[in-house]
Design a protein around this nucleic acid. Structure first.
Lengths: 218, 218
DNA sequence: TCCGTTGGGGAGTGTCACTATCCAAGCATG
DNA sequence: CATGCTTGGATAGTGACACTCCCCAACGGA
């Protein structure tokens, strides 16, 4: 398949594909002559993956490259590859180190992990982007005076655990390690907008139930 | 309080505050002389709100202005103000209209809303950004061959409903309509990173449980 | 041989969230 | 009143990012 056909079938412009090739998000095609290259179905698949990461998952290009590198890194075992890939995902600003709200938040989060007995997370907490993301979100809530104590977070954490069991069940259905790792990353990334939009819809639904239909300005 | 003090207390540079004033994310201070202005505690609060929206919630500046305008719009009732504010939140790219995967996704999502009996969402589906966000995420999953049928989405939806009930309970604790609306927006925005990071931590935990500790390269 | 098409690569575009600089008007001190 | 620092407002610039335009040389069918 030529670049033009790859573009046609993926819905991505040739200019953008060339950009991805330059950025090494796609491996180069098999060179046929000095100025022509042949692309495979695998390229198409990879391109769709990249688009999903960048467009739906809002992952920066440089980050997407890191994620994909980790996914394919044969020197790591499966668990580490998933970890490395997910750790590369975007995770917002670092918590402000010299802020009392950050200190409070860190304490709350540590208490939470302890209560949940999430030993793995506690062990790698200082390194984990997800941990730092959580701390900085809790710090922001604290600064604004919104409640986000252990008790409230615990409810969210239990719900998150339901999700993760569900997701891992799905991941385990894939046969090869590569498929499993890839599925882990893609389900992590692509179910995030699903989860957020369902939550917003559910809140609209619930808000309508409680405040809607003529219960004006209460 | 002078601009410099506002900057000091909020941890935001004077240049950035001036930028927010220009962009009307903050109301202008009370003019003392031709070249000096006085800012209040309310400005500080608002500034922290703006920072939370932009930094933690990753809301674009223009969008943050819309959200804040809707929150304070007295001509709407409470339910509509929450709706307007949340609809302004970022919601990713529009679903590709001429794509078979989008059609499939839309059908799945419509079936889901029907089964859940989310009448309000179905009524406003075509307009709701959250609905379109859901469709385009499901479409991306479909294109990549990952499962996201009604049954699987339903599990996520039920979990989302647990979250929304929880959140609305919290919102109802606030006394005034303005506080309620503001809380609704801030909890929607600021609990999103909390939820995503907890999910990632939970997945790491679960992945470690299943694949970790010497179960290499399975 | 001609001419449209192809792939590669450098440079340009638009957006966005700031940020650096300038200027005039305070205010503080001698 | 003069001097010099600070303040607030406005304009223009920065750097990151994700493309996107355009040119060129090499194909390759007529």
């Amino acid at each position: 398949m030529r670049l033009a056909e790859l573009s046609e079938r993926s819905g991505v412009s040739t200019a953008t594909i060339k950009y991805y090739l330059r950025e090494r998000l796609l491996p180069p095609g098999r060179r046929v002559t000095a100025t022509q290259a042949e692309y495979s179905e695998e390229h198409l698949r990879r391109l769709r993956l990249v688009r999903a990461l960048i467009q739906v998952g809002r992952v920066p290009v440089a980050t997407a490259r890191e994620v994909l590198t980790a996914v394919e890194d044969d020197s790591l075992d499966q668990h580490m590859r998933i970890g490395a890939a997910v750790w590369s995902l975007p995770h917002g600003p670092e918590p402000a180190e010299d802020d009392p709200a950050t200190e409070t938040a860190r304490r709350e989060v540590d208490r939470l992990l302890e209560e949940l007995d999430w030993g793995f997370s506690r062990a790698v907490a200082a390194l984990s982007p997800a941990y730092r993301m959580l701390v900085s979100a809790v710090a922001a809530l604290t600064r604004l005076g919104y409640p986000c104590d252990v008790q409230y977070l615990t409810a969210y954490a239990h719900i998150s655990r339901q999700l993760s069991v569900h997701d891992l069940d799905l991941i385990e259905e894939y046969a090869t390690p590569l498929e499993k790792v890839e599925a882990a990353v893609m389900l992590t990334v692509l179910y995030e907008p699903v989860l957020l939009s369902l939550r917003r819809l559910a809140e609209a639904e619930e808000s309508n139930r409680r405040f809607g239909e003529g219960k004006k300005g209460e």
